[in-house]
Design a binder for these strands. Sequence first.
DNA 1: GTCTATATGGGGATAGAC
DNA 2: GTCTATCCCCATATAGAC
Lengths: 199, 199
Amino acid sequence: MTHTELDAKMRILLAAKKLFADQGFDGTSVRQICDEAGANVALVSYHFGGKENVFAALFDQFFPSERIDEFFKQQMSPVEGVKLIIAEVIRFRKSDPELAKITDQEVVTRSPRTHHLKRRILPLWTKLRGLLEEGRERGDFRFGSLDQGLLFVMGSVLFPKNVHMVESILQEEPLSVDAIIEETQIFVLRGLGMVESDK
Amino acid sequence: MTHTELDAKMRILLAAKKLFADQGFDGTSVRQICDEAGANVALVSYHFGGKENVFAALFDQFFPSERIDEFFKQQMSPVEGVKLIIAEVIRFRKSDPELAKITDQEVVTRSPRTHHLKRRILPLWTKLRGLLEEGRERGDFRFGSLDQGLLFVMGSVLFPKNVHMVESILQEEPLSVDAIIEETQIFVLRGLGMVESDK
DNA sequence: GTCTATATGGGGATAGAC
DNA sequence: GTCTATCCCCATATAGAC
């Protein structure tokens, strides 16, 4: 982790991450990727074995699977858990906006690549569903449909704001990550009908 | 509107809507579109002048611009307005899930086609922003950042549920449209910190 | 590991017959 | 309005030299 020049393999990964985020997988050619990376076209085949595998390697490299694993080891109350998931997801999306965008794209397009994402992210959303259920049973929350509640939380956390179309509506100075997390926690917990005891 | 066979132009439009929704614009070829439409490849050029223009024509044909125009003629209080926008948007997305998906894709991918969408939809979100602002001034709502509040409402309404990746987490029987609208209104108004007087 | 050169297919688009 | 046949370009991928 010195100032050494990155090798071609990593440069290709970084270029692919950037371009996939901007233009989508299908909208990006390996030629573009290699231009951006300052690498030769043939190196995609050599290092990864094709464009599809570059996509897979992206998630191997940059998706925070260990962090999710650690999260699952913890014990927590529903309210704590919901707040923690909100904070962690927002923090990750802020730390790697490109991977977040790629993820968002895969959610709305049925692609032969979805499983890379599903495998890694579904456990977290399933956990969230469990927390909501438990929280409602314990009387912490009061909302109607569990599925619908889950969707609201996901929507509040995942709705993309660093995309051009959304940015063009916003007018205020961007908040700090911590401020965004806090506002999201407040909105979500209120929305779920949390009985006001801690907040 | 009889049982007359649709002409090739319309068949192409419908096929394109379906395929763009499933696979994205770049992931769909005009050959695929014409196969699906039972039409000849050359007809895309003849009727539209290219694939890009098929996309534009899709919004000319199916986007409910008149309905939005009518909405703008009405006078309404912030709470009423927010509830109405929630209801209208959810109703439209349910009535044309394919166009909704295409819209969602355009939001997360910077494409040379975004302006078709922006031109039509931004006025509505700007109006919503105004309603939130007015509502907060009047004391109907209490929330922090206006931009952030706007994003929460948009996320709650727009988060896609009829996509495979999201569906695989859900477990309950789907709600009726009216039930979804009601739950969304409750979640959003609670989240915005509405002072409980009408609801 | 990295390059050049090339193979092979599919992409969008159109000329011109019907 | 609709078809066939064709053009040309750009896509991914690889063989083989360095």
